[in-house]
Design a protein around this nucleic acid. Sequence first.
DNA 1: CGACGCGTTGATATGGCTCAAGAGTGGTGG
DNA 2: CCACCACTCTTGAGCCATATCAACGCGTCG
Lengths: 225, 225
Amino acid sequence: MYVTDPMLPNARQARSAIAPEITRQRTMTFKPGKHLYLEGDNANRIYEVATGVLRLTRMLGDGRRQVIAFGYPGDTVGFPSDGFYHTDCDALVPSTLVVHRRSDLETSVGDADVHRRLLGAALREISAMQDHFLMLGRKSSVEKLASFLSVLTDRVGTPLGDFTQVNLPMSRSDIADFLGLTTETISRTFTQLRKSRIIEIDHVNTIIVLKPQALLSIAEGLKDQ
Amino acid sequence: MYVTDPMLPNARQARSAIAPEITRQRTMTFKPGKHLYLEGDNANRIYEVATGVLRLTRMLGDGRRQVIAFGYPGDTVGFPSDGFYHTDCDALVPSTLVVHRRSDLETSVGDADVHRRLLGAALREISAMQDHFLMLGRKSSVEKLASFLSVLTDRVGTPLGDFTQVNLPMSRSDIADFLGLTTETISRTFTQLRKSRIIEIDHVNTIIVLKPQALLSIAEGLKDQ
DNA sequence: CGACGCGTTGATATGGCTCAAGAGTGGTGG
DNA sequence: CCACCACTCTTGAGCCATATCAACGCGTCG
């Protein structure tokens, strides 16, 4: 078990992300511990995250792992390529998902609106991955962590007086595998940001962003440290 | 000017990749030196590469560059996200492109077949980018270059007796920016593969793959060296 | 012929990794 | 309620892969 909090910010975001008319559709709950799907599985379903957080991973033969993405409310996971999934997917916290058939994405003969939504999600996914490329390939460790925290702050941060609280349902090693670093480096970089008074570490899994603008500057490579 | 050869293998691949019935559609030629589109441009067109090679890039403020992808015949570039392009795109060699309207991707009211093709291309793109993630985040320099050459060998290599010739229309610095390395490291790694008798460097931009299987082993992290 | 851009090679520097040792944190059971 | 354990996170020390800085060769072009 990773996080005890009810992930309030995600629930909030979910309501705006998932239009009311589709809540009639088939939904399911999904808990940490098992996999939603594995790389190579037949991709018959596509999932929209309504609440919770999913984790998409790929493995190299010798155990090296890359976290491809974290699926937050509003995100869509399980896009097929040639009929198969190309990542593993599991949950970081108990999640609820809206389930779509692969055919909903592939043809618009069913619900044309769902088709359009899924297509849009796929295109946004491509764009998000292109950002991630730039980060993996060309950013330093502080820049990587700052980018990561900056995105989370905007997407799922909870306003808290002048500051923003961000919940991290994933472990340090998940973050490391997402950013292409090691857990030790993640830890040291958190400390560095804390000592620079840009963030505070309330609890291991709960940080408070004191200077979101500074975080963004670092993320964009405008600030050295 | 980057490459003098007529890129025969690409032309060959193109004929199988682009179905005959769509050759009736609007095509254009595009040459190196100018941009097909820039990040932030309104994305009204989507392009299928018929012949040639395109280069998709993203820049960080201070000039750091990431090559997102090389567009070979059969690839589709210019997927919009929220109506805009999110990379720059130019050509490495004179290329011919099949032009589609954005609406061809977004709705199937026009040609349903084109719609399906573009959608499939978008989904394959997502899958290809996930592979690329694993590479950028977790592979060593030899593994990265071996992965790169291995893919090119399979996709656009020309059989040459027992071996396979691969043309590299991109510069060392393009490869570096694609793999998240420096030109010096690319150069040293080429030398390393050459000294291991896995490849031969016929001309700066033309290599001969002597042991494709060894290349693949390295790429997958099964071989240390 | 000289200038320039690109690629290679060498020498050195360094950011992030590895290995190792604590310090928190949460869970369980007495 | 505390003692204990397992696991994750943090911190330190040293090392290594890749970056950086620099020199040079080669081909192309004016």
